[in-house]
Design a protein around this nucleic acid. Structure first.
Lengths: 186, 186
DNA sequence: GTCTATAGAGTGATAGAC
DNA sequence: GTCTATCACTCTATAGAC
């Protein structure tokens, strides 16, 4: 029998895509098996806790990706301006210029929010805090930096909604351009 | 037999609340009958087309509410500044200071977007256009007004996401305050 | 009688868990 | 694959207003 040996780690990005596309409730086992090319038994082998465990793993994976890319861009560059520029590039690439939606944002809006409240809150908090820290290194006051960071992350989420609504990636890419400019010029 | 006679019009706001809370896929008939206090027969009597017709009616209702309130605030006041202020008040009240989510935004992010693409696009386009027109009346150039309006509507959507993520209404109300100020001072 | 709103059993299909 | 629960939806019967 032909077998494609899969590992849990390899399944998670595909799972993420299913949850992103259909939301938590809409991610049925049929869609999950279709999206992962795995049978139900394999899925339950990797995630005995069912959909809840799958969603947890996906959220952890997204969190990890942002920590290793976006937040690292912001924190580990000696030049804060360069770090902020890199963050916008990372974000633009991650969301496929607006064609891809934010999984955590989708979860935040749905009734699954309460179930994953900690993960959702931590994701946005970590992002805002990392950006605020970088903004402080550009010479802004802590309070101003925090407010600006919140503004930027919120605007990115809103731009994803509008890009989907209008089915136009430029709504997203132009927003990123504008936000970057406004952070780095005044 | 005890009867509480309902009308289609009275059902729609309750339906809207169910769709807002659970999304299109998550709005099961069980949740719909629970949320509307109506039996299946009554629901299907009012909406023979099933969930699709219910969602259409709800989107039309939201559209109508915004046209009759938010957009009217913007367009039919002789003083554009007063109109913009009224819009922010309307929006703050409508979204219950951020406790309530935007139904159209939720639909835009989900895979139901394609099914209701026209309604979703028109809702945001009408909002942005109405705000842009008011901004032009405050003396801004058409292009600048359009970009600013898009920015504001996007920021409002993003603020709803963050308010839900942090479970803090002030994230939403502070964003409204900031946006209003930035439109009316510079 | 007609008409509209309601009650709720019952349909096959699909859900998630195992 | 197998399990039960739930899915969206249909149907017949019936309530009360005219």
């Amino acid at each position: 029998m032909a077998r494609v040996i899969a590992e849990r780690e390899d399944v998670i990005p595909m799972l993420a895509e299913v949850f992103r596309t259909y939301g938590f409730e809409g991610a049925s086992l049929a869609r999950i098996t279709e999206g992962t090319k795995l049978g139900k038994s394999s899925i339950y082998h990797f995630f005995p806790g069912g959909k809840e465990e799958m969603a947890e793993a996906v959220l952890a994976h997204v969190d990890d990706w942002f920590k290793r890319n976006v937040f690292e861009s912001l924190n580990e560059r000696s030049d804060a301006v360069e770090g902020i520029t890199a963050m916008f590039d990372d974000v633009g690439r991650y969301f496929l210029s607006g064609r891809r939606v934010c999984l955590v944002g989708v979860f935040a809006l749905g009734n699954e929010r309460d179930r994953f409240a900690d993960r959702i809150r931590d994701y946005f908090a970590a992002w805002i805090d990392a950006l605020a820290a970088a903004l402080e290194r550009t010479g802004r006051k802590p309070q101003e930096a925090q407010a600006l960071a919140e503004e930027v992350v919120g605007s990115i989420q809103g731009a994803l909604v509008l890009a989907r609504a209008f089915d136009r990636t430029d709504v997203f890419t132009e927003t990123l351009k504008r936000l970057r400019k406004s952070l780095l010029t005044d």
